[in-house]
Nucleic acid binder design. Structure first.
Lengths: 211, 211
DNA sequence: CGTAAAATCCCCCAATATGGGTGATTGATT
DNA sequence: AATCAATCACCCATATTGGGGGATTTTACG
């Protein structure tokens, strides 16, 4: 069974370039080409693509919003973002939107075919630097001024727990937690939960996510 | 300049197998082999490895704790986890510990060489399925019962903001926020911030991470 | 051994936040 | 017409928070 591919890209030559290359591959079937998300979404049900090659800068709805819509309608469809820039903010938002890979548009079109194959094989194609970025996003605890216990307390704060709840969880008195909080605030030079969490988050002193 | 490699692996034959293969490659220099993290850490300063191949199940300190220690001493050293199992919990904790890649031990040793090269080239080698797992970990908002606004409010709660602060940020009254919270609690069947955050987090209705 | 840091606990106080209730209005969407 | 989303209001009791004083014990390190 041929894999159905849809391309959303506003640049005509790139769009047609993709089609030309992908058309030569028997296992692929290029369903349709679109210059914007709106048109593509209107025809999603007919196209039923297995893979969507999505540009990120588009007139009207951008590629990220488009990805969200596509995944909502076709959860099993793999959306691969194809772009010229490695904008970390966009990479992050694309992945959150449900993109299955983030490919940097380069001269070598055969690499793109390789990437599509990788995505269909269950992988998540990314350039080397993006893969590194993604993996590094898990990294935490650079050089926190906080002690282990304080980190633990702040982590609990970030989970929305009250002092009393944290005290229960850690088998200590509420007053102890308050002491830790005071020390944390002093070290981070803040005076509220929100500020402490913001700093701890941006420095990755607390986690926040699981696989 | 040759790339310095250290191997930490308790299985003798695998350990020696790696050395045998890597020794045949001119650009690599295998510094030392260790059967546990403790010994490896004691010699880190002499070895000064560019890359550490790390087993995850080890006697004494496990590979994850070892990774943390190594990264603390040699932040630029790349630690590649080599394991037989793709345990999502371990993958996650390894990456958090600072691992630069997570390679599944397989029969093909040449693939491992390829992976080391990829890591040295600035990438983050992973098996297809792990790459997919990692990327999917960014994915959010499966089918939340919450409205967009409610999600926004809950997100702010997860950031430790008070009702008043959220109200200011969203340019609405504090009472409006309270209404949203009440609706959120009703929908999620909880009655506290912590519980709401826990549910929203496990269902990925709120973010928590940045790149 | 002595010091410093970390972790533990206690009290006081005032301001704020929170959770629950019971509403109401407006604008979309269906 | 009915539903849902989003907005706002007021009441009330309790919990939480942040800041100020302390104190004790355990642990780590030179």
């Amino acid at each position: 069974m041929k894999k159905r591919i849809t391309i959303i890209e506003d640049n005509v030559s790139i769009r047609e370039g993709f089609r030309a290359v992908l058309d030569t591959i028997e296992k692929y079937e290029v369903m349709n080409l679109y210059s914007n998300c709106e048109d593509a979404l209107a025809n999603l049900d007919q196209d039923q693509p297995d893979v969507v090659l999505m540009d990120i800068e588009l007139p009207g709805m951008d590629g990220i919003a488009g990805t969200v819509r596509i995944k909502k309608q076709l959860p099993n469809c793999i959306v691969l973002i194809i772009t010229v820039l490695e904008d970390s903010e966009k990479v992050f938002r694309s992945l959150c939107a449900g993109a299955g890979g983030y490919i940097v548009k380069n001269s070598n079109i055969s690499e793109i075919v390789q990437n599509i194959d990788e995505a269909l094989a269950g992988g998540a194609p990314m350039s080397l630097s993006i893969a590194r970025m993604v993996v590094q996003s898990f990294r935490q605890q650079q050089d926190s001024p906080l002690t282990e216990r304080e980190t633990q307390v702040l982590q609990s704060i970030a989970e929305g727990k009250s002092y009393s709840k944290i005290a229960l969880d850690l088998y200590v008195s509420k007053e102890t937690i308050r002491s830790h909080i005071k020390n944390i605030y002093r070290k981070l030079e803040v005076s509220s939960k929100a500020d402490a969490i913001k700093i701890a988050n941006s420095n990755k002193w607390v986690t926040g996510r699981s696989l």
